[in-house]
Design a protein around this nucleic acid. Structure first.
Lengths: 217, 217
DNA sequence: TAGATTGTTAATCGATTAACAATC
DNA sequence: TAGATTGTTAATCGATTAACAATC
């Protein structure tokens, strides 16, 4: 909920999406792109793309649009921490392990540096290339590796305690998969991913569509 | 993107959240609740709660607020398909298997009825209680079980083809984990969960906060 | 120059917030 | 009755969309 400064979370999300699209285009050798082309691929409007890109400080030209390579570089300067950022993942259950696999080599400037769990069966190992520690070691490891990001992949009952520990250890941003609203200081950014809620939302609209189709026929 | 009728996706998400909170309160024996109490727990405002609940057709009273049990029932009538809805999951990789485990018994009216993959090593088995089929069997199974919901947990390269197949089979709502924008007919509801984008958003704000703290000190 | 695209400003739209009479 | 909460309407806020001069 901590909406910092001038960049809205929606704009941020779109910028990440643009970069992904541009990276693919760059690999194909595309030198430049117009806003409406990028918009088409991103599911946005050309005006949105132009406004979003202005936030990064990069300008296009009317004749050639935006240079793909330069724009990727500009997005990198805007979005990334130059030295990269390690992530502390807490919760090595089914979801936690899937996230370990998923985020491995997904972004060059973001990696899961350490995973934590209270279950001694799960700690002391290396899973998907990531070392797993006891939760009691959290503060030390976070400090040692100067981690700023945390992923909460534990059951709802322990999520708040885990978030408190992460913040106490110096974490500044959280990606939370637990289906509760975390109470955090206002300078901490929390992004919630609520899998059940998302599926329920889909279920609602699908059920409604089914009813409409029944009524219509 | 198919925003159907009068209920905004944001309201929907909050209603799901309210129900979860209310269910916990009901288990504790709480008989009734005021909007500001529910708002407090949901991270919303009291006015939002009252407006959201009006959409479900249930009314509170000034003296007692909202009856917890009645409200849960009302939310159920509004949100759920009475007969429940089965889900077709496509992609039995790390993420797909985690989702199978996660959604098992998570909501009484929502269950993953069948999982699909192209890899013969993964099909013909039962994982977390769910039968796994070859993707070629998708249309038959979806029709047989009258599935309306699909989860796309395959790599980006095959996501559009999978979505097309699901929609062709009769699916009306999609939960998409692939990091691309799916092209679907307008009556199909798509909810995107983009894990990388979410982590990148957290990373941006955390990096920014770190810089602000450096500048400040 | 002509034409399409850019950055920028004004208008629109929708959701949130504030205000208030009605109610228990 | 007094007081707090409810459902409802008006005002505010922010983002999206439309409009347009500047630019290549």
């Amino acid at each position: 909920m901590a909406k910092e400064g001038a960049v809205a979370a929606k704009t941020l999300a779109r910028l990440c999406l643009y970069r992904r699209i541009l990276t693919a285009l760059h690999a194909e050798g595309v030198p430049s792109i117009y806003s409406h082309q990028l918009a088409e691929q991103a599911g946005a409007t050309a005006a949105q793309v132009r406004r979003d890109l202005m936030a990064t400080g990069y300008s296009g030209t009317p004749s050639r649009g935006y240079g793909v390579q330069e724009l990727i570089a500009s997005l990198g300067r805007f979005l990334d921490a130059p030295e990269g950022q390690g992530v502390a993942l807490v919760g090595i259950g089914n979801l936690g392990r899937a996230l370990l696999a998923y985020f491995t080599h997904r972004r060059p400037k973001l990696w899961i540096a350490a995973a934590f769990d209270t279950d001694p069966q799960k700690t002391g190992r290396v899973i998907h290339g990531c070392r797993c520690f006891a939760l009691t070691e959290l503060a030390d490891i976070v400090a040692e590796h100067r981690l700023r990001l945390g992923v909460v992949a534990v059951p709802a009952a322990s999520a708040q305690a885990v978030a408190d520990q992460l913040i106490q250890a110096g974490i500044l941003g959280l990606l939370n998969f637990a289906p509760i609203r975390l109470r955090v200081p206002k300078q901490i950014y929390v992004e919630d991913i609520d899998l059940t809620m998302s599926l329920e939302t889909v279920a609602f609209f699908a059920h409604r569509q089914a009813q409409m189709e029944e009524d219509g026929s």
